[in-house]
Amino acid sequence: MSESSSDVNTFSAGSLPKSYSSRYSELGVAHLPASARHGSDSGLGSTPLPSSRFRFVSWHHLAHCHLTGDQLTCPRVREGPSADELFHGDEEAAGEQRWRMRMRREEEGPSWEERRQENWENCRELNLSYQDLGEPFQRENFLRILHRLIRVERLQLVDNSLSNLTSVRLPRCKVLNLQRNHLVCLLHLPKLPAVEQLCLAENAIASLGGLDTLRNSPLRSLNLALNPVAFAQDYRAHVFSCLPNLEILDGVPKLPEDNLHTGFRFPQISRMCNIL
């Protein structure tokens, strides 16, 4: 492993263990398109991370790689399908997969179980963005992990197609990023008694109903940019009136004119039609 001038660790061609090199080639990475093998992530600038060469490899195949967690952009934690689901309708392939897993378990001994153990309860900072939760078993496993984050303080959940997190409680979370999900209502947020910074930008939240659930939290910064509700009349005044401790809304500090409508309420919708 060598260090480039940009302080980003990179791998030399011969730095990987032989055991991993063979496994890496077996995964078919060499057959990826040239643009996928050599291009960098669009959101990371022109210098790729050392993990870029492994971004199309399943996370459970990285056991023998010397990458550390802080070098991964967004490690995928999805639990994979069982052998029966993976090879549905192909009993021979399913049997071969089970045999390989059994042989691997016997070869590695206790380390197999140790590696499979999870310690989400003691996690303090976590990035679980871009998980591509397209299957029910993936979403169920993702929620199972969220339920165990009892000590997390900073959590990134960007672009996960999440629509309802009411069953989740994050008692110590201070910074939560839910940008680019499918939330339509503030009532679908997780329970956040300690949140200080909350980003809900680029969702589908159309009303401020449920905003008062955050009133007793120490929330200082809220981002609702590019939600339908952000285009409502007197939107900022209403948010600041509901959240007196709020200091920043959509990246803009509280302005003097945001106090002009302290007692503002959305007008009642009239059923009468006025013809001018």
Rank of each mutant, 00 (worst) to 15 (best):
S19D: 15
H66V: 09
E118W: 11
G28T: 08
G134L: 11
V184G: 00
F87T: 02
R115P: 00
I269F: 05
N119D: 15
F264P: 02
H238N: 13
L219G: 01
H38S: 11
Y20H: 11
E85C: 02
I269Q: 07
L162T: 09
S5H: 15
L211Y: 08
S217T: 15
E135N: 07
E3K: 13
A232H: 14
S5Y: 13
L192N: 01
H261P: 00
R180P: 00
H261S: 04
Y130W: 09
E140W: 05
D258L: 02
L243V: 08
L187H: 10
L200F: 13
N127T: 14
E125F: 11
V29W: 07
L16Q: 10
N223V: 05
L165M: 11
D7E: 15
L246I: 12
L157E: 10
V239L: 00
L224C: 03
S12P: 02
E91T: 05
A34D: 02
S22N: 06
H38A: 13
Q138I: 02
N227F: 04
S46A: 05
F56A: 10
E91N: 02
R116V: 04
R148L: 04
V252M: 08
L27A: 12
V77F: 03
R105M: 09
T68D: 04
E108F: 08
M103F: 02
Y235Q: 08
H31E: 14
A194I: 05
S163G: 06
S52D: 11
K18R: 15
L178M: 03
E196K: 10
F137K: 09
R53H: 03
N203T: 14
F264D: 04
L126E: 04
S161Q: 15
S22E: 06
H261K: 09
N245S: 11
I269E: 09
A206C: 11
F11S: 05
L49S: 10
Q179L: 08
A13T: 14
L219R: 05
R172A: 02
S46L: 06
V57A: 01
S58Q: 11
V152H: 00
S42W: 12
L208S: 07
L243Y: 13
L243W: 12
D90L: 04
S42M: 07
E26H: 10
G89L: 09
Y24H: 06
L62V: 07
D84A: 09
L183K: 08
P253K: 12
E196S: 07
C242E: 12
A204H: 13
H66G: 09
R220E: 08
L72C: 09
P218R: 03
S25R: 15
L133S: 00
S2L: 14
R78L: 00
T73W: 04
E96F: 13
G39A: 12
F142K: 06
S111T: 12
F266Q: 15
L178K: 00
L62K: 09
A94K: 01
F142W: 10
P244Q: 15
